[in-house]
Design a protein around this nucleic acid. Structure first.
Length: 273
DNA sequence: AGTGCGGCCTGTCCGC
DNA sequence: TGCGGACAGGCCGCAC
């Protein structure tokens, strides 16, 4: 389940292998991702030079002079760099083969991911134009969140997972950040004071950047890493710990559903309701 | 306009 | 042991 840190780690891992390289061939083995892969993609990409790899939220952006290839890893997607092409496995849906022989291989068992070519100005692209700020940017502050939520009666957890408010905060990090900030996940966003928003913004930034740092060291070799080591699991405070005792106060953690997604929190430590 | 939720998909886990 | 069903999750796109 790639959350933002994994996507960023992927970006950092593949960038040095791809930057400046020219695409020789594109092999599509399964078109059926979230949206079908454009069957003209191979002819569109062949011969083009990759300028850089950027990221917007959880979208990876392979940037060419002529356009951009958007890659989203969905729930189960991953990218690998192969120095030598090996036989594809069941869920290896796409290969980008470079002129130097290197291969970027997309694997995605659940096919919630996406691979889309666009020549449009990215700020106008349907999937990107409405996205909120990057959580690690200077733009994402307590003041921003506070102002943005004055009229919102929706639960704070749903709000921080809303990509129009801020990108890249998935279910795991939403749970963890709210715990860290001592905020009850069902609190209506407009009832939360600025001090709590300050804690929340710091918690989000801290958790995400710690995970990126960790990912950077565990996953530095992108050319061989098969499965990813799941670098949250050690440090999770609440996620996946429903009914277990809170690490801080030993109170039994509660598990509820919000927007069909599981929320775990400590009823004692997270009281801003 | 803002909000809420259905559905896409498969691997994993649980209970029978 | 094998099988069926529930569940997990990001996020678009539709229905209120």
């Amino acid at each position: 389940m790639p959350e933002l840190p994994e996507v960023e780690t992927t970006r950092l891992g593949i960038e040095p292998h791809l930057e400046g390289q020219v695409i020789k061939q594109v092999i599509i083995r399964d078109y059926r991702l979230r949206w079908a892969i454009d069957s003209d993609l191979p002819s569109k990409l062949a011969g083009l030079r990759i300028i850089s790899i950027a990221r917007r939220g959880k979208y990876l952006l392979l940037q060419f002079k002529k356009g951009t290839l958007l890659i989203h890893l969905g729930m189960s997607g991953s990218l690998r760099v192969l120095k030598k092409i090996i036989p594809p496995k069941k869920h290896d849906h796409l290969d980008l083969i470079l002129e130097n022989g290197t291969c970027l291989r997309l694997t995605d068992p659940r096919r919630f991911g996406a691979v889309l070519w666009t020549t449009e100005d990215l700020t106008k692209h349907k999937l990107l134009k409405a996205l909120g700020p990057e959580p690690l940017s200077r733009e994402f502050t307590a003041t921003y969140l506070f102002n943005k939520t004055r009229t919102k009666k929706a639960a704070i957890k749903l709000l921080i997972m809303d990509s129009k408010i801020v990108v890249g905060v998935g279910n795991i990090y939403a749970n963890e950040a709210l715990f860290k900030a001592g905020i009850h996940p069902t609190s209506p966003a407009k009832t939360i004071d600025k001090e709590h928003y300050q804690k929340l913004v710091l918690a989000i930034k801290k958790t995400l950047s710690a995970a990126i740092k960790k990912g950077g060291t565990t996953l530095r070799d992108f050319t061989s890493s098969e499965g990813q080591p799941g670098y949250f699991s050690n440090s999770l405070q609440v996620y996946g710990r429903g009914k277990l005792p809170c690490f801080r106060c030993k109170t039994k953690l509660q598990e509820i559903k919000q927007g069909q997604r599981s929320t775990v929190f400590c009823p004692r430590c997270q009281k801003s309701e």
